[in-house]
């Protein structure tokens, strides 16, 4: 159970003069859920892009089950991007077919079940769906893979609070034994009960890192409250 699924070691990244990440390190063991927390512009998406081999030009080391981000790691990682990554003229059914042909671990029957429970209309084109529905579709496509690591970039940002519980239970219900989740968010209060541990990113630096329960008992505060203190303007 204690296999390290994701290792991030001394990772730094700059865009020109702009520092996006500075010496970021943490580990994620199998079976665990880690929260990557921080306001917009703190480096969350940059780090996630590095893990998903969308950015190659960085310092430090990243390993997914021992693999550098690339062809092998992509088979193990199911990634939910922060923006719609599919052509909007695709129908929902075509999007399912696309994932099904692309990923060997995609469970088509599971995806159909999930779309029904999330009430995503299958006949429509992606572009005809509301933003919330588009997010539910992308979450379905991501969680219907039997991956080792799920990387979810802001999965609840665009849905209303009422739908958040549904999204969270979908995530909890679909990550399988021994797999892990890295979930980035700037909205903490509705999701903090699902984290094993949290990493607070501030201006590209790790500001606070720890087990969620330990942080609660040490500080006598919720993760949400700590977040507000770390990022007080």
């Amino acid at each position: 159970m204690s296999e390290i699924l994701l290792e991030v070691k001394h990772v730094s990244k700059r865009y020109g003069q702009q520092v996006a990440l500075r010496d970021v390190s943490f580990e994620l063991a199998s079976g665990k859920i880690i929260g990557l927390l921080g306001p917009n512009g703190s480096g969350k998406t940059t780090l996630i892009k590095i893990i998903n081999s969308l950015l190659a030009d960085y310092e430090g080391e990243v390993r997914v089950s021992g693999h550098k981000p690339g062809k092998e790691s992509k088979k193990l990682v199911s990634y939910l991007p922060d923006k719609m990554a599919l052509p909007t003229w695709l129908s929902v059914t075509e999007a399912l077919d696309l994932y099904n042909s692309f990923f060997a671990d995609f469970q088509l029957a599971r995806a159909n079940e999930l779309l029904n429970s999330l009430k995503v209309p299958q006949g429509k084109r992606i572009g005809e769906l509301s933003k919330g529905m588009q997010e539910k579709l992308m979450l379905t496509l991501t969680m219907a893979r039997r991956a080792k690591l799920y990387v979810l970039d802001e999965p609840i940002a665009g849905v209303d609070p009422a739908a958040r519980d549904l999204i969270l239970s979908t995530i909890l219900d679909n990550f399988t034994d021994g797999s892990s989740i890295l979930l980035s968010t700037h909205i903490i209060s509705d999701v903090e009960t699902i984290f094993d541990s949290v990493v607070f990113l501030k201006e590209g630096n790790v500001d606070l890192i720890g087990e969620a329960e330990t942080l609660r008992s040490e500080h006598g505060k919720s993760i949400d409250q700590l977040f507000r203190e770390v990022y007080r303007c």
Partner: peptide, 11 residues
């Protein structure tokens, strides 16, 4: 039970 309570199964 974890799902019902909305908490992490490890917790």
């Amino acid at each position: 039970l974890a799902l019902e309570l909305g908490v992490n199964p490890n917790t």
